[in-house]
């Protein structure tokens, strides 16, 4: 899902300077499950794809702080407030690990932030939806983090060392995120009629966007093949999406709330859940900037960036005045 925008751009042909021999040797390293590190030779396209994928993943974490942060001041218990704060803080941390990994490839934090704020870089479309009720916080943890985990665990084995290591760190921390979301939903579903209705309403609004997180269907993802060959991508969009549905529908049944899909049903032959058609128009609209919260998400980041300019400048001025170490 962090490659949502990637498949839409056609890759420019690799420069002819990429010697076929170097390429072949590189590919055999990949095939042998060797890790590629920052200074190793790599095809330009591999580097560029990774920079885009990792930075988009980082942007997603950072932007993701906003819909959840939206309910921090209104969390209904001190325990929930603390858990949500820790989760949002983790997301900032994940963004940082990923920016750090991306920087090993020849981009900089400043460049990546610029690309995000100018709209050049994408982030996961799911975060362009609003969190309207407390139940949304539960739904996000349960569904959105659930979907993210599906993608993240295979990435721990991706071919690029710094990215794989960042993912290992992230996956270790991620386990509590989904559990806290599910726990919120469970508490609501076992609560008053009003609370249960809140939970059902959240599921109604977050189900389809969560499915869209996995990106377009395999038939429409022509460029996935190269990413798979380079072990940047380990499973196809449809494979992950099916896995998500198969795992999540029983959880919804346990909660006692209905997945908003009339075509949903267990296929006795395949053992998988069949599900309805995704409205890809909505997906492309949101990806193109026409979702409920796209503008406000970026505006908030832009404002934070602008408001912080005097702070960053002052810190630099101080460091310059007081020499290399500038320690207290």
């Amino acid at each position: 899902m962090y490659t949502q925008g990637l498949d839409q751009k056609s890759e420019t042909a690799a420069r002819r300077l990429d010697d076929a021999g170097l390429l072949a040797a590189f590919q055999s390293r990949i095939d042998a499950e060797e890790k590629i590190e920052a200074k190793d030779w790599m095809p330009d396209a591999y580097r560029r794809t990774l920079i885009r994928q990792i930075s988009q993943h980082a942007h997603s974490e950072i932007i993701g702080m906003q819909p959840e942060g939206n309910w921090l001041t209104r969390a209904p218990s001190l325990r929930r407030k603390a858990i949500l704060l820790a989760k949002v803080q983790d997301e900032a941390g994940h963004g940082l690990y990923l920016y750090s990994a991306a920087e090993t490839l020849g981009t900089s934090r400043g460049q990546m932030v610029d690309d995000l704020l100018t709209g050049k870089a994408k982030y996961s479309s799911i975060f362009n939806y609003p969190t309207l009720t407390w139940a949304d916080i539960g739904a996000i943890g349960w569904l959105v983090d659930g979907a993210a985990i599906m993608n993240q665990i295979p990435l721990c084995r991706c071919s690029y060392g710094p990215y794989a290591r960042a993912m290992v760190r992230i996956c270790k921390e991620e386990s509590f995120h989904q559990r806290q979301g599910f726990e919120i939903m469970l508490t609501l579903c076992r609560g008053t009629a009003g609370q249960k209705a809140m939970a059902q309403d959240a599921l109604n609004r977050w189900w389809w966007p969560s499915l869209m997180m996995f990106g377009p269907g395999d038939a429409d993802s022509k460029h996935s093949a190269q990413s798979m060959a380079w072990k940047i991508k380990r499973f196809t969009n449809d494979e992950l999406r099916q896995k998500f549905v198969d795992v999540t529908v029983p959880q919804a049944e346990f909660l006692g709330i209905r997945v908003p899909d009339d075509d949903l049903g267990l296929n006795a032959e395949t053992g998988h859940y069949d599900f309805g058609e995704i409205d890809w128009q909505e997906f492309f609209d949101v990806l193109a900037g026409n979702g409920p919260c796209n503008r406000q998400r970026l505006e908030k980041r832009q404002r934070a960036h602008d408001d912080g300019a005097w702070v960053r400048e002052a810190a630099q001025a101080y460091a310059k005045k007081h020499g290399r170490r500038a320690a207290a």
Binding site: L96, S100, A101, E103, A315, Y318, H322, A326, A327, A328
Partner: peptide, 10 residues
């Protein structure tokens, strides 16, 4: 990993 900072203490 890495972090950005203006000085060593930061």
């Amino acid at each position: 990993g890495s972090v950005h900072a203006a000085d060593a203490q930061m």
